[in-house]
């Protein structure tokens, strides 16, 4: 006889969500990010201009009815490039964040839970990754293999980027495993993998999620920064960073605002929104019922 179960009562997640909804800034950010992402994904249906093909007749034209935000030095529509560029940039940043968070969580939780020798070996390895000169490595790599594509970029940045998350997760797990419910889990016969996945991770996942979100923002900076310098996304693929690199000459900055201002604003707004979202989630998760 199963009693009619009442509304699956107030889980900690529901409480956090209720708290999050009160945060107007964070909600606005979510809506903004949702729109930006949706527009980028729907790019092929929203604009008929080709973001890649060079059109000599329209080089460096200002905004007009045809080209809402004008064209760049290749005669390509800025709006189309913003949308397609967003696809590239957001895809890169989400993938990196996902890989970095998974790797970091894996290494960090194993090190934190088992401690002892496992911990010291894994953390020495993490230190090695952390001290790796990231920028130099990427530049040298690009110099040796100039034709690397987006996936190589994602893999390289991910492999060099998980150290911070691993350390964070490890420290959280170290603190969390002192709770008696972990000892209780051992005494009722849970295997280590179950203890980590069912008991420890759900209690530190909020920190991990917030960290993952902030990594997305950080990776937008990395992508735009590297692409601006010419070491990121290949120049023939539109990305927000590649659009910014058009502004490398003072001539463009002075006279053709439409080439760099829209992408600049979009990048800044997106990074801000992601950070507001992250902060809002952090606050929502940390409120005591």
């Amino acid at each position: 006889m199963l009693p009619v179960h009442p509304q699956r009562s107030t889980s900690p997640w529901r409480l956090a969500f209720a708290e999050f909804r009160k945060n107007k800034l964070a909600i606005t950010s979510v809506i903004f990010l949702f729109f930006v992402t949706a527009l980028c994904i729907l790019a092929p249906w929203l604009t008929s201009w080709d973001p890649v093909k060079i059109n000599i007749r329209f080089i460096n034209k200002g905004p007009s009815a045809e080209h809402w935000l004008g064209t760049d030095k290749g005669g390509r529509d800025i709006v189309a490039r913003l949308l397609y560029g967003g696809r590239t940039t957001l895809w890169i940043c989400f993938s990196i964040s996902l890989i970095v968070t998974s790797l970091g969580t894996l290494v960090g939780s194993i090190a934190g839970y088992f401690g002892g020798r496992v911990d010291s070996w894994l953390m020495r390895f993490t230190d090695l990754v952390l001290i790796f000169p990231f920028l130099v490595f990427v530049i040298v790599l690009k110099a040796i293999f100039p034709d690397t594509g987006i996936s190589i970029f994602i893999i390289v940045v991910s492999i060099l980027g998980w150290g911070g998350t691993a350390r964070l997760v490890r420290s959280k797990i170290l603190a969390e495993k002192e709770n008696e419910y972990v000892l209780a889990a051992v005494s009722i016969g849970c295997k280590p993998s179950i203890i980590i996945m069912k008991h420890l991770l759900p209690n530190v996942i909020t920190t991990i999620i917030v960290q993952a979100i902030l990594i997305v923002a950080g990776m937008i900076t990395v992508e735009t920064g590297l692409s601006y310098l010419g070491f990121g996304v290949p120049a023939n693929i539109p990305s927000w960073g590649n659009m910014m690199s058009d502004a490398i000459s003072p001539e463009v900055i002075k006279n053709q605002w439409w080439v760099w201002l829209p992408s600049g604003i979009l990048i800044t707004a997106t990074i801000l929104a992601i950070n507001f979202l992250g902060e809002g989630m952090k606050d929502a998760f940390n409120t005591k019922k």
Binding site: N179, E180, Y181, A184, S187, I188, P202, N203
Partner: peptide, 16 residues
């Protein structure tokens, strides 16, 4: 089996 001292720390807060 064991019954623990602290009824607040000995139950996983995220589990039903």
């Amino acid at each position: 089996q064991m019954v623990f001292q602290d009824p607040f720390a000995s139950l996983n807060p995220k589990m039903m």
